[in-house]
Design a protein around this nucleic acid. Structure first.
Length: 427
RNA sequence: GGAGAGGUGGCAGAGUGGUCGAAUGCGUCCGACUUGAAAUCGGAUGUCCCAAAAGGACCGUGGGUUCGAAUCCCACCCUCUCCGCCA
């Protein structure tokens, strides 16, 4: 959520920065409503002050021995009732205005960072670097797509999953399930060794949590909802982990918090009918290891770079070729001010596919979630900065392994770093 | 699912109609004592709105009673304990 005070004081700058994303955001209305609200608040708080005064003096008079039913007290009561009647009109107006402002603000995305490149859509994203050209498979043309490999080996089963649930689900069988588990463990082991605290959060989250991290109210159709309860299936560990510290005041000394969290993720993928219909790329349920940081504002840019490196380390460990893309303003996610995507090489299609997205959300989520920190000895509080990044999406990692480690004879080699976890060299 | 208890400041915990934004303890900060530290003593210390003063809001949430509500009434949410069931 953007800071109302900032919008008020730097209207033109905020509007211009927001425009870099494209799209239309109704800031003038916010300002207008805010002005109305503040006017009413001024009047209301004066009336409130008078009402408080009356209340106090009634009490005092009675204590001093005035007749509670006498004319002196009755006059005050009468005035009190009048003030109250006026308040009764103003209060609902003010509440309504505040609600309208809040509703609009919750629908406005984060401001892009100054360093985020301008662009209208993903075609204008900027490649930052590539890694692992020496690991590119030799004869890509002969390689099969990962679903054919997996189904051929009997480790991926899409048909039966459609029977159990729907399309866009998969069952992992035998060594496929073991590979999934090995990847999860490998990633968590690596991140915890580098100072991330492992978290297994609830996979069902309430409306307040989804609002805090930015999925609601705008993207309700993207999440699965439990009809009988105020609960949704979490679309990413980012949601529960953000809310670990919702409505908390942390102390400066305990920051930063670095978390890593393995969770299943559930997404309706509404509006992506027909895209990536085969394979592991776009499923309603997938596993992911997420990294998440709560940091002091002045460190967030460095923490962001480090986060990307931590995600890259997984791909490098697996020797999977990838490139790093910086998203342009038009492709930036709702809560992010700056995002790097990691895209892994998929030989069967000859393309790089997103396997990790590492975002700096600045204080945007922290405002929505009301997560602040306090400097000991200093007055007041500040919002923390939050960052999140996949480290990595497990299903897509498996897809990349099945394709990149595929041999001409159809067998698949196990990446070296996973061999200890799987106790085998070949799938 | 049945019965009961409870939600108060960073934490613990008092407060059952006005003098309560809220005792006390812990924690934190400043100072004294000390070579230094601990202990001890003195003082300070909630958050939010408003540019700020003044003022206002906030004792789970939302309503109600009252001149006046942390305190009384209603509804809802959540937590805990016991019983039952159960991974």
């Amino acid at each position: 959520m953007l800071d109302l005070k900032t919008i008020r004081q730097n209207f033109d700058t905020v509007q211009a920065t927001l425009n870099r994303r494209g799209g239309n955001y109704d800031l003038p209305t916010v300002i207008d409503l805010d002005q109305q609200q503040r006017e009413i608040e001024g009047t209301r708080s004066q009336l409130q002050a008078r009402s408080n005064e009356i209340g106090k003096s009634v009490g005092q008079k009675i204590r001093e021995g005035a007749d509670p039913k006498g004319p002196e007290v009755a006059a005050l009561r009468e005035e009190g009732n009048q003030v109250k009647a006026q308040l009764g009109e103003l209060e609902p107006q003010e509440r309504e205005l505040k609600a309208q402002i809040e509703a609009i603000l919750l629908g406005i995305p984060n401001l892009p960072s100054e360093t985020t490149p301008d662009g209208k859509d993903e075609s204008e994203n900027v490649e930052v670097r590539r890694w692992g050209d020496e690991h590119l498979p030799k004869d890509s043309a002969a390689l099969k797509p990962h679903w054919e490999v997996g189904e051929g080996m009997g480790i991926l089963n899409f048909e039966r999953s459609a029977k159990i649930a729907q399309s866009r689900f998969v069952a992992l069988m035998g060594v496929g399930a073991a590979l999934e588990r090995a990847l999860i463990t490998y990633m968590l082991d690596r991140h915890t060794r580098h100072g991330y605290t492992e978290v297994i959060p609830p996979y069902l989250v309430n409306t307040a949590s989804l609002t805090a991290s930015g999925q609601l109210p705008k993207f309700a159709e993207e999440s699965f909802q439990c009809k009988n309860d105020d609960l949704w299936l979490s679309p990413t560990a980012e949601v529960p982990v953000t809310n670990l510290h919702r409505d908390e005041i942390l102390t400066a000394a305990e920051l930063p918090f670095h978390y890593c969290s393995f969770t299943p993720c559930f997404r309706r993928e509404a509006g992506s009918y027909g895209r990536d219909t085969r394979g592991l790329i776009r499923l309603h349920q997938f596993n992911k290891v997420e990294m998440y940081k709560f940091v002091r504002p002045e460190t967030s840019e460095d923490e962001h770079q480090a986060l990307v490196k931590d995600a890259e380390a997984i791909l490098q460990g697996l020797k999977l070729p990838y490139r790093v893309i910086e998203l342009c303003t038009g492709d930036l996610g709702f809560s992010a001010n700056k995002t790097y995507d990691l895209e892994v090489w998929m030989p069967s299609s000859g393309t790089y596919r997103e396997i990790s997205s590492c975002s700096n959300c600045g204080d945007y989520q922290a405002r929505r979630a009301n997560i602040r920190f306090k400097e000991t000895g200093k007055k007041g509080t500040q919002f923390v900065h939050t960052l999140n990044g996949s480290g990595l999406a497990i299903g897509r990692t498996m897809a990349a392994i099945l394709e990149n480690y595929q041999q001409p004879d159809g067998s698949v080699q196990v990446p070296e770093v996973l061999q200890p976890y799987l106790n085998r060299e070949w799938l």
